[in-house]
Design a binder for these strands. Structure first.
Length: 489
RNA sequence: GCCGCCCUAGCUCAGUUGGUUAGAGCGCCAGAUUGUGGCUCUGGAGGUCUCCCGUUCGAUCCGGGAGGGCGGUACCA
């Protein structure tokens, strides 16, 4: 007989296990944000994890394999289905499918896992939870403003302190107008300009100047081809991106100087002015939302206003290195998504953020929403023949709303105490022969013991003292446990 | 995708100029303590030295390839 081939216990790369601590933190974020979104009149919606691949906008080549980027499989009727890569594409499908019967404009929020089949990196996974809110069927700039205000309020409700995040607003139409004025007509060249501008925060104006022109050689020796603008056009783009200082109306005035005159630029400016006015009415000041001309976001997707939520938190990692979290979410107006299905253009705008990313940002900022996950009261399984009594005790505690469990392993008492300690249990209940005979229970306050343990040096003394331990009448058990719980609340 | 660096126990890492039984700290399990968490001491489990091919009498070590990780860059709905 040869050794059986055993599978290696490991998770696929880009997929992570998340334990109680993470889950509690994320659940709190979602609860807080959902409450805000519902207060704004957005209804929850849940759609399935799979969509037909064509509904996601993924074109399937004749090869029996869909485009990269998504996880796809073929149904038994040969149709390609794929796991959703965001929550916007399923919304577009849902809206198109139910358009006739939906109240319009349709306002909904959604959260859940999304999947991307691409190379994972630090803080970048192939499965992660997104939270998304959209208004479908309103072309008014006020719809964008409301999404922005709601995003700002949502992030704050999730636990981000005021001033630690700012929403940056821009409008695609401004850049389009600018490029038209600069004589950029070629689509490939337009994309190259957008990509260059998107890198402003990382490379600075000099790096972007190179990318707008001939190209840039980075430290690793790789060369990135530039957009091929002439010097005058490049400077004009840079001047545009530099206009984002001061208040919103100041910025708008400056932008008018740079892009004003072109039809598309003027339209973009008018939208931003309307958004600014609505934001002011909504009570969102420049501390929470600014106009930032260098924001680009997804390339071919957005048609008008775009926004990005940037974290301003300054934090350091375990090694003391400063970390920049940067963007935690973004969104914008996409007026062509539903039209893919129905043929008729439907204006829509939305915002989405990564829930785990926000949670880890909050943690790094010392805003841990779930610092420790407490374990249950542990009923020590002292005498194997009295298990029924122990379950009765656990039931009594549970009935009083106290998380409790009977130790179900086979180990001795020492290991059971260690188990309770490791679970961060507030207390252990010990019922042995003595207690059974006397109709009492022994309760050990583990929190108190944790506090005292650091000062004890001698094990015999530690055991002798039995800190926080009391033997009381069985009828007083729940009250005594309550007292221990309340002391730490 | 492209460029560079890295891969030895669950974790962090030593080490072997290519030679027979590969180590430490932490963690884990058990005992000292037959009804008590921490400390201390003692003992134990745990490794195809990432995988495959080649060179060699002999490879964890040298060469090639693959996989995985890290950093940069590109892309990102």
């Amino acid at each position: 007989m040869s050794e059986p081939v055993r599978p290696e216990a490991r998770s696929p790369r880009g997929f992570v296990d998340r334990r109680a601590r993470d889950l509690v933190a994320e659940r709190r974020i979602l609860t807080a944000v959902s409450a805000v979104y519902e207060r704004y009149g957005f209804e929850p919606l849940e759609t399935g994890a799979f969509e037909y691949a064509d509904a996601l906008g993924k074109f399937l080549p004749d090869a029996d394999r869909p485009n990269e980027g998504v996880f796809a499989l073929q149904d038994d009727d040969e149709q390609w289905m794929a796991l959703r890569y965001d929550l916007t594409a399923p919304l577009a499908r849902f809206a198109a499918q139910n358009w006739e019967t939906l109240p319009k404009p349709f306002r909904r929020y959604a959260f859940g896992p999304v999947w991307r089949n691409e190379k994972p990196g630090p803080g970048r996974f192939r499965e992660f939870v997104q939270c998304d809110a959209d208004t479908v069927g309103s072309a008014r700039p006020e719809a964008d403003a409301e999404i922005i205000a709601m995003a700002a309020e949502g992030l704050q409700a999730a636990g981000l302190p005021a001033g630690s995040a700012v929403l940056k607003i821009n409008n695609r139409k401004l850049l389009n107008g600018l490029m038209a004025a600069a004589g950029v007509a070629d689509d490939a060249q337009k994309l190259a300009v957008l990509r260059a501008v998107d890198k402003l925060d990382r490379l600075g104006p000099d790096g972007v100047r190179l990318l707008l022109g001939e190209g840039r050689l980075d430290e690793s020796g790789a060369f990135t081809k530039g957009a091929g603008l002439n010097a005058a056009a490049a400077e004009r783009v840079l001047a545009f991106t530099a206009a984002g200082v001061g208040g919103r109306s100041e910025t708008l005035t400056k932008l008018a100087d740079v892009v004003g005159g072109s039809a598309e630029g003027d339209a973009g400016l008018a939208e931003l002015e309307a958004i600014d006015r609505a934001l002011t009415g909504l009570g969102v000041g420049v501390d929470r939302a600014v106009i930032e001309p260098s924001v680009v976001r997804g390339l071919e997707y957005y048609t008008g206003p775009v926004f990005e939520a940037e974290l301003l938190l300054q934090t350091t990692d375990e090694k003391g290195q400063p970390i920049r979290f940067g963007s935690v979410g973004g969104g914008g107006r996409y007026d062509d998504l539903v039209a893919r299905f129905t043929g008729q253009p439907v204006p829509a705008t939305g915002f989405s953020f990564g829930v785990s990313r926000l949670a880890s940002a909050l943690r790094a900022a010392g805003r841990d929403l779930a610092a420790e996950v407490r374990g249950p009261v542990v009923v020590i399984a002292f005498d194997q023949s009295r298990m029924a009594d122990y379950f009765q005790v656990a039931g009594e505690l549970r009935g009083a709303g106290v998380p409790a469990e009977v130790y179900l392993g086979a180990s001795g008492m020492k290991a059971q105490m260690k188990y309770a300690d490791r679970r961060l249990s507030p207390a252990a209940v010990i019922i042995g022969e003595d207690e059974l005979a006397a109709g009492t229970v022994t309760i050990k306050d583990l929190d108190l013991g944790r506090e005292l343990s650091s000062k004890v040096t001698d094990n015999a003394a530690w055991r002798e003292q039995r800190p926080g331990q009391q033997t009381i009448a069985r009828t007083e058990m729940v009250a005594a446990i309550r007292k221990i719980l309340d002391a730490r609340a």
